[in-house]
């Protein structure tokens, strides 16, 4: 199984700077890896984004979520269902999956498992809730 993880890493690292969290949500986040955010935020940008749209922690880097939001709306060929998933409340990361192949975990459904006490929210935030 390690060979699948190795192949995934070789492909995804150069393109998305994949961090191998083993529970990939790239498709829901405008094809922008949220694990490259210094705070590894999976549910949108923190309140520390700079006036120029750059990262609080790494001033030279454009905020991962500013990029993700922009791409989720404007990237051509992105399936509508992926765009619609952008606002979903993504559950806490399962740290046991780090280094594992997310492809394998997507096929087995392992990446969808959440802690028993976690309840998904009933409705996704309204897409119209933007200014």
């Amino acid at each position: 199984m390690k060979i699948i993880a190795a192949i995934e890493h070789v492909i995804k690292k150069p393109i998305w700077d994949c961090q191998m969290c083993g529970q990939c949500v790239l498709h829901d986040t405008g094809m922008t890896c949220p694990m490259t955010c210094p705070k590894t935020l999976r549910n949108g940008p923190c309140g520390g984004v700079r006036e120029d749209g750059h990262c609080e922690v790494k001033p030279e880097m454009r905020c991962v979520w500013v990029k993700a939001e922009d791409r989720s709306r404007n990237m051509p060929l992105l399936p509508t269902v992926w765009r619609e998933h952008f606002n979903n409340l993504r559950p806490p990361v399962d740290n046991r999956l780090k280094g594992d192949s997310s492809w394998k975990n997507a096929i087995s459904g392992r990446d969808k498992e959440t802690p028993p006490g976690w309840t998904p929210v009933a409705e996704a935030p309204e897409a119209e809730a933007k200014a």
Partner: peptide
Amino acid sequence: THPLDYRAQR
């Protein structure tokens, strides 16, 4: 702060 249009959704 940015992305301004997205803050209300967050």
